[in-house]
Design a protein around this nucleic acid. Structure first.
Length: 365
DNA sequence: AGTATTCTGGAGGGAGGTGA
DNA sequence: TCACCTCCCTCCAGAATACT
């Protein structure tokens, strides 16, 4: 996140397209930004190798590349064969290029691999043509892509445009149409989140979409479900929104056989049995229960996963046990657990329980 | 009024813990 | 030692909410 992260230098040194020394007239300080990818050819070869070794296949190049970079043993990373494409400059000391395209040419001169598909386009028409052309050529490329990045070329204009909190205003992604697939909705379940929001969740017949097995998809809320007109038992088109989140696009009404039935929002929370209300002006239905285990677990999970508390090995499973046994309803209560409960936790044995006990003892100090 | 941020959902895969 | 399990992290759309 800019402050905390993983040390992957040793792994990156195994990537051949990252030069270990720069060539030509290089600046005194250079931060090369880019992307690590696994070429389709290398992905296929890797899976063949794993096949020979009797190991499971990798599902897709993107996750295989992400996992390879995180390896603790760089020998494994070296074997995976990754490729690095440089696409921009970060910190820099020296004669700064005046445009994005010059910056990329500079990176190439210094010995970095840069994309040969990049192109300068004058005007939005040329940009649109380029994107359309790339979408056509998508299947023939040596790596998977899901779109194009369009950048303002002149650095002075980039500086005038500035940045938003997480992304610059001078660059935008154009995403291709997502890959779609057909499957059937087995059931729609009401799922209770940490805020009590009850979300209709489609349980699907598992189907492959863009290198991933999809078996569940959120329908967000009742309005969204009604707008799409989805029934339990429907054949539906699904897609991965921008290649990540599974989404139900639309039902195929012509495939209905009359056995489909609508999802009805329960009037009692499926987890705690409390009433379900739809607050005025809101889209979501909510569980009214103050002690709803689903909400408590959700809140505690969220709290822990955001590392608000620095307890090593503090397990979600342990939280669930504490909530299920009725011993804990919020974070503060964890620190007020009585001696008998702590003792029984310690007897449970798992390291996470002992870590928790230790953390609580420390907090009392 | 318009823009930014936060929250929520699911899947894949690595790391590390657990138990036989 | 090995198989299995849990957890974490990442991605982004849509809704709600916060901020300018």
């Amino acid at each position: 996140d800019g402050m905390v992260g993983e040390e992957i230098t040793a792994n990156l040194r195994t990537i051949r397209s990252i030069p270990l020394s720069l060539s030509g007239d290089f600046p005194s300080l250079l931060e090369a930004r880019g992307e690590v990818v696994m070429l389709l050819e290398d992905f296929q070869r890797l899976n063949e190798l794993y096949e020979e070794r009797g190991l499971p296949h990798f599902a897709n190049p993107r996750n295989a590349a992400a996992g390879s970079v995180r390896q603790l043993d760089s020998k494994i990373t070296a074997e995976r064969k990754l490729t690095f494409f440089a696409y921009g400059l970060g910190r820099f000391e020296g004669a700064l290029p005046s445009s994005q395209s010059e910056a990329i040419s500079l990176l190439a001169d210094l010995g970095f691999l840069v994309s040969s598909l990049r192109q300068k386009a004058l005007g939005i028409g040329a940009v649109a043509d380029y994107c359309a052309d790339m979408e056509k050529r998508r299947e023939t490329l040596p790596f998977e892509i899901d779109g194009c990045v369009i950048k303002v070329d002149e650095i002075s204009l980039q500086e005038r445009l500035g940045e938003k909190s997480r992304s610059p205003r001078w660059a935008v992604a154009y995403k291709f149409k997502p890959v779609q697939a057909l499957t059937r909705i087995r059931d729609i379940l009401p799922s209770v989140g940490r805020t009590g929001a009850i979300t209709p969740l489609a349980v699907l017949d598992a189907v492959q979409v863009g290198g991933v097995t999809v078996s569940r998809a959120t329908l967000h809320n009742m309005d969204e479900l009604m707008r799409k007109g989805v029934l339990i038992g429907d054949w539906v088109v699904i897609q991965r929104a921008v290649d990540v989140i599974p989404e139900v696009v639309a039902p195929l009404a012509e495939r209905r056989d009359g056995l489909e039935r609508p999802f009805i929002m329960p009037d009692r929370c499926p987890v705690c049995g409390s009433g379900v209300i739809k607050p005025e002006g809101e889209v979501v239905y909510r569980c009214e229960g103050l002690d709803c285990p689903a909400q408590i677990k959700g809140r505690l999970k969220n709290f822990v996963s955001r590392r608000a508390m620095d307890i090593d090995g503090f397990g979600i499973k342990l939280i669930e046990q504490l909530v299920d046994s009725g011993k804990v309803r919020d974070m503060a209560e964890i620190f007020r657990l009585d001696a008998a409960t702590l003792a029984s936790l310690e007897r449970m044995g798992p390291k996470s329980a002992q870590n928790l006990v230790e953390a609580i003892e420390k907090s009392k100090g």
